[in-house]
Simulated assay, not measured.
Amino acid sequence: MYVLLDPDPGDEPARDDDELLVRTALERVTDGALPLPDLVPGALVRGRRRRARARAAIGATATAIVGLGVLGAALPVWGGDGEPARAWSAASQTSPVPTPTSVPVPVRPPVHIEPSPGESSMADLPSDELSRQRVFQNEAAGVLETLLPRAMGPVRPVDIAVSRYQGGAGGRVFPLTFSVRPLPTGKAARADRPCVDVAVKHLRCDEVSLPGGIMAQAVTASGNAEGGKTITGVTVRFRYGHSRVTLAVGGDDTAMVSAPVTADDLLAVARDARFMEMVAYADARPMEAEEGSVRGG
């Protein structure tokens, strides 16, 4: 579930006004994050090619993770038994600095989403870059599953873009965005959007201080999407280095179930050293297009 407003010029195209109302505010508050792709299969012939390439990439990723790892010490492995430590109450735990080890991280097979006609996907990347992003996604999924509330598990990467993940079990699907997107500079630079409450759109925004003096915007947005039911999504976003970081969880808009997390849950993730280590890597070695650019095929 994403609440969307019309994007600024140069951002992703706006969605149809007849889509879920609850999609209207989170695109505004997740400025720069890529929209969820259409789940309806398309471009079948090209899809077969992409699926074959994706399967090959998954195998290459597994080799990279089990061996020395594509990212080396920049993405340490957490936990002593090959599994990320499962500490479900992120808000109550401390944030110890992780210790790099040589223990392999379990590979989480990505969820496949067929690109819409004209849309690109990770399968279109050069093999080296695809492998790097696969390893990053695998590591990030483990960290997010560890830090988010238990209802979000298991967390898996989504193969449409490095910023896309999904969580949930028992038939629930909660879209999750973890984006570290380079900010434009010079004349293309844009001011941050103000943090304001919009009661008519059921949108609340709070400014919160993170470690290191980072100021974050924590947004909760909800709306009546279908049959009078209200579903809610949450977003935390902030600047880090040369990038805008967006962490967002949406509701299951098929089952009409709100995101099983709160803004405080996401802030607890953002305060954790393990999450910020992933942010620092992605800021130093960008994997997404510059904010404001249009992603296409």
Rank of each mutant, 00 (worst) to 15 (best):
R172S: 14
V245H: 02
H242S: 15
G167H: 01
S209L: 14
R193Q: 12
V196Y: 05
F174E: 01
R244F: 07
A199R: 11
T262N: 00
R244L: 11
L176M: 09
G228P: 06
V236I: 11
L210A: 08
D252S: 10
V200P: 02
L247G: 00
R190K: 14
P182T: 04
G213K: 06
T262E: 02
A218M: 10
V234N: 10
D206F: 09
R193M: 12
Q166A: 14
M256Q: 11
G241H: 10
D253K: 06
T232C: 05
L210G: 12
F238Y: 15
A169H: 13
T246N: 11
V261H: 00
T230M: 15
G170Y: 12
T254N: 13
T185L: 15
K201S: 05
V196T: 12
S222E: 12
A218Q: 08
F178I: 00
A248K: 06
V236M: 03
V257L: 12
Q166N: 13
V257W: 00
L266H: 02
T177I: 14
H242T: 12
T220L: 08
A199T: 13
L267F: 06
F238T: 01
D253S: 08
L203M: 11
V196P: 04
D206H: 15
G171H: 05
A248Y: 04
P211G: 02
L210F: 06
S222Q: 14
A216T: 01
K201G: 12
Y165M: 01
A216P: 07
A268Y: 03
D264E: 08
A255F: 06
